[in-house]
Write a protein that binds this DNA or RNA. Structure first.
Lengths: 333, 333
DNA sequence: GTCGATAATGAAAGCGCTTTCATCCCTTTC
DNA sequence: GAAAGGGATGAAAGCGCTTTCATTATCGAC
């Protein structure tokens, strides 16, 4: 038999079912137009042959790649993971696959990955953070792919952005702590753009209170549990008696709580701690951690929703989608 | 100009550079054969046009998809993340992209994702865990894609497997604890196949010592920090005086340490704790956590190495690659 | 019974590349 | 100086699908 020993193709199915290739193609892409009896014959032939459509060939012909690129700095300790998880499952529901790209914490891998995505004619490119490089912005703008920047809220998005305002977080956090009566905060700031935006807004707002200027220390991003020892030492050097430490992540906050206990201090009685991200541990730690809740999964959902609307040919009116955030007051501050 | 307002294609570059399409194709796929002066002309044309090759079309013609599918249960709290991260960066170095698929903790999404991967003619399919479903195994076996099962060590891999022996972990852990003089362990077991393999091996080995049969409790996988409260309660009910708790993950171990402190017990003096996975927190927690080190990144590297050797046409002699594991003794046990 | 719709299908021309085979021209080599 | 070899390029035939356009069959409606 001619079809032995090779991967069956559309034509083989057509022949076996006694129809034309066009009809088999319609069976897959537009099933409502094929007659039930014909469909049944095709289904049978497909099963007998073990046929799996070649989406590469299909993609070329239809110029639909069914591919969405998701580019993030890293995933090992990432706060983006909820977002990615949500996107991947939502997208695969639509028959889209996601190409995962790791840009590195400094985004150095981004240009190559964007090129790779465009070369595959990705229908969407979802980026974490906003793209700084002007050349890249242009390159992305010229293409038909939907480009979604997430987690930040640029004034002028390349295409669409969904995230929240880091400035607003900083401001609100300052107000929140001021209202609770704290007077000597220490800020632990990750050395990334976003963390700095929050810090600056915090300091600006804090200055309004007329209270002591907060001490600050820097950590590498991604900030995590292991930074705590070093940070603790640094904090104590700069100000042995801060009343609250504001962290760039819940993991770091958790680490500091452990350090505080190891140093014989109680949280929050002797020193308070605030996290960021509202990871599940924030609600599970002892004491539970006061944090800023960002609905990562929601960012993912909204991003996918935008993609869907684009696919449906809708115009996207609101190009900057603010999902907001909430300060969750718990035991630690 | 004819090339205005549309995405330039290979032919446009060829025309502009004054060469044939074939030569431009060679410029990309086999640059060593094109004359330097010609290459320069092409480079110039590419830059002027902003040409990006269409890898979909290229893939169809060359029947190379340059796509590797990576299928994992989830990524939000995953122990696989180091592996994924390593694979993604290694693969993108080779110009391969990775399609990330989430199968769900029960692997229910696997069949569809495998079909999607095959439909895109993925060159490799990397699975976490071993595939139980026989139909799926067959489907995978028939294709030319390299299939790599990771984290487990099946007796008869579909194609290639890289991981470690969960039985050996259980056995070694039992010996390790016995040697340290522990007499009343409690086992916290995730309700997954792999965790159960470790447990059974542990119990078998422990029985040899003639000591008290360990108490056990179950948790949902993925096991994490938040399970600790419930587990702690359960442990205390089953045996108020265990001398060591053996956990299915470092996160859970960390949670139990926090619980122990909250209950006024010292680790390891009053109760010891052992983790699994050797996440970075294991070495950073206070006390540092005794754990089982599995080099997740190495699994990723080995998997990619296999893919490379296949791509180079090499035969893979060793179809089961055991990367081993090490028990890291730290403060907590 | 005829006509226009409508539904179902087929024929064929691509989609934008890769690759085989052939060609041409320039070096070597004796 | 001719033959042989090799390097660089071009022509053209696909890769396995999709989709437009045309065709045929079917069905009411008048």
């Amino acid at each position: 038999m001619a079809t032995k020993n090779r991967v069956p193709k559309l034509e083989d199915v057509a022949e076996r079912a006694g129809v034309s290739p066009a009809t088999v193609s319609r069976f897959y892409n537009n099933p409502s137009v094929v007659a039930p009896s014909t469909a049944e014959k095709i289904r049978k032939a497909v099963a007998e042959l073990g046929y799996v459509p070649d989406l590469i060939a299909g993609g070329l012909a239809s110029r639909r790649s069914r591919l969405v690129a998701v580019l993030v700095p890293e995933i090992a300790h990432s706060i983006f993971n909820d977002t990615i998880e949500e996107m991947v499952s939502e997208l695969s529901r639509d028959g889209l696959i996601v190409m995962l790209g790791l840009t590195g914490m400094d985004d150095s891998g981004m240009p190559k990955l964007i090129e790779a995505a465009l070369a595959r004619r990705a229908e969407g490119v979802i980026l974490s953070g906003i793209v700084a490089n002007e050349t890249l912005r242009q390159q992305l703008q010229g293409r038909s792919a939907t480009v979604i920047e997430t987690w930040g809220l640029p004034e002028k998005p390349i295409d669409v952005a969904v995230g929240f305002s880091h400035e607003a977080v900083g401001t609100d956090l300052a107000r929140f702590l001021a209202a609770r009566g704290y007077r000597r905060p220490h800020l632990v700031v990750g050395n990334g753009v976003r963390a700095r935006m929050r810090r600056d807004a915090f300091l600006r707002e804090w200055a309004q209170t007329g209270r002591r200027t907060p001490t600050k220390s820097d950590v590498e991003i991604p900030t995590h549990f292991g930074h705590a020892r070093m940070v603790w030492r640094q904090v104590m050097e700069l100000d042995p008696k801060p009343d609250v430490i504001v962290c760039g992540s819940d993991l770091l906050a958790q680490g500091l709580i452990v350090e505080a206990y190891a140093a014989g201090k109680r949280v929050p009685q002797d020193i308070a701690v605030v996290g960021f991200g509202n990871l599940s541990i924030a609600g599970e730690m002892r004491p539970t951690i006061t944090s800023v809740d960002l609905d990562g999964a929601r960012i993912g959902r909204e991003a996918v929703a935008v993609l869907r609307r684009r696919a449906a040919g809708e115009k996207i009116a609101n190009r900057v989608i603010d999902i907001g955030f909430r300060i969750i007051a718990r035991e630690s501050a």
